[in-house]
Design a protein around this nucleic acid. Structure first.
Lengths: 243, 243
DNA sequence: CCGGTGCCTTGACGTTGATCATGATGGGCG
DNA sequence: CGCCCATCATGATCAACGTCAAGGCACCGG
């Protein structure tokens, strides 16, 4: 019985890089010990489901490395990507906090390492350390702001504008180079998932891409995109801003 | 110098009915004293603005009586009603928590009484009483769930289905009678505001109403609606559910 | 080398809802 | 009572998107 209890390398909450960027940075040594003892680490391959929409929510997931998408499906089978999650994020905390079943599915888009924390432990920590609750409060409030923004955009903006907006959001995280307005980025998603992010059909996404290329706003090749001028992209979102 | 310091009748946080249904129920006597001393009561007539989108957020508003709408506007002037608020709700707490300017406007739809609480006081209370933070956490998390649901619906459901859904939501609060599926309700909003709730134009709302009447799903007269069968309304939302 | 499979593109077509314009309705007020 | 104003209804038209169908292209296993 060696010290190796998980999948190859030892993971612990004390040295976890992701934790420091997460809500859990509020915890002290003793609380970290509790966290470390309670956590269950798991490695996921791309395309695996962490939890399904409708599943009972038994705790939260700490996202350590990789990339995951949050997908929401309605009764007719229409699905959209609510968003992407990154290392440091906590998954499934919303359902946990209100004590409901999961309102969305979480699936890995790249190989990922994710820790599970059972509800009892989280509840204990929340009760024990008020700062943790305030951290979550910040996170949820920020998310709510983003969601409300998205509601507005989804009913007022055209597909083209929403796509431009998505590219700008992705740019902040994935842009490789950038001088005087020019930039390139490597898309983290397939076209159909890009489409799902703004709630449109893959066919419509294809056409939107073609249009942007015809107008010289952005050029697509596989998953790489080249944008000659950010301002052109910005103008797609606020049509009448300065004429 | 009589005891009357506000607009006619004395308002205090100790006996406030709305507070008991709000996050503030977590406070103890001493904290209530602080709350009561800090609050600024104000009466609003219909159509008044409590705060504007883009205004700096200096605190939160406790909604005591009346009715208010939260409106969000984009750069092109398109506006939607994010939702309605009712006595017991706290207004502007999201912007306050993340320390941003207000992301939406709040305007009264009926005569209302609303207390203002400055940010410093709220911060003190939050720090002092962890339960208050957890109450807010609950509220925000619930709101976030609703917002995500709405994002999905706004891109997948037709106008007709979204309107049916809105009627069902309003039913829970405003339905006057109801036996075996039949019910009536008094709309709290004008048509153009109903339209704004689901992000469509007033003209489209008119046509949606006409259609529902032609199909015998609901009958409109001024602000009163009669629905002969709830199931018909439910079926509008999940088209292929049981055929 | 071949056939399969998943993802993407393209085209033709229908439907939905926005837009613009015009007229109806009804309530408040002089 | 009649006028004005806001709200609502209706019609005609158009652009945007979804839908259906077909075909290309890369990757994979046999």
């Amino acid at each position: 019985m060696a010290a190796c209890n998980t999948s190859s390398i030892r993971r612990d909450c004390f040295t976890c890089q992701s934790r420091e960027r997460a809500e859990w940075c509020a915890l002290n040594k003793e609380e970290l010990r509790l966290l470390d003892k309670a956590k269950v680490v798991r490695e996921y391959r791309p395309g695996e489901v962490i939890f399904h929409q409708g599943d009972p929510c038994r705790g939260v997931h700490c996202f350590e490395t990789g990339m995951v998408g949050l997908r929401k499906i309605d009764a007719d089978g229409n699905s959209i990507l609510l968003g992407l999650a990154y290392p440091g994020d906590t998954l499934g905390y919303r359902s946990f906090l209100v004590g409901e079943d999961h309102g969305a599915s979480a699936e890995t888009l790249k190989p990922s390492t994710i820790c599970f924390l059972d509800g009892a432990t989280v509840r204990t920590l929340l009760k024990h350390n008020p700062a943790l609750g305030l951290q979550f409060l910040q996170t949820v409030a920020r998310e709510l702001g983003a969601a409300e923004e998205r509601i507005l955009q989804s009913v007022t903006l055209s597909v083209r504008a929403r796509f431009a907006h998505l590219l700008l959001v992705l740019k902040d995280r994935y842009a490789t180079s950038g001088k005087d307005g020019r930039f390139e980025l490597e898309l983290p998603l397939a076209r159909q998932d890009l489409a799902a992010m703004i709630g449109i059909r893959p066919e419509t996404m294809s056409r939107a891409i073609k249009q942007l290329e015809e107008d010289g706003v952005a050029y697509f090749s596989g998953r790489s995109v080249a944008v000659p001028d950010v301002k052109r992209l910005l103008r797609e979102i606020e049509p009448e801003s300065y004429l």
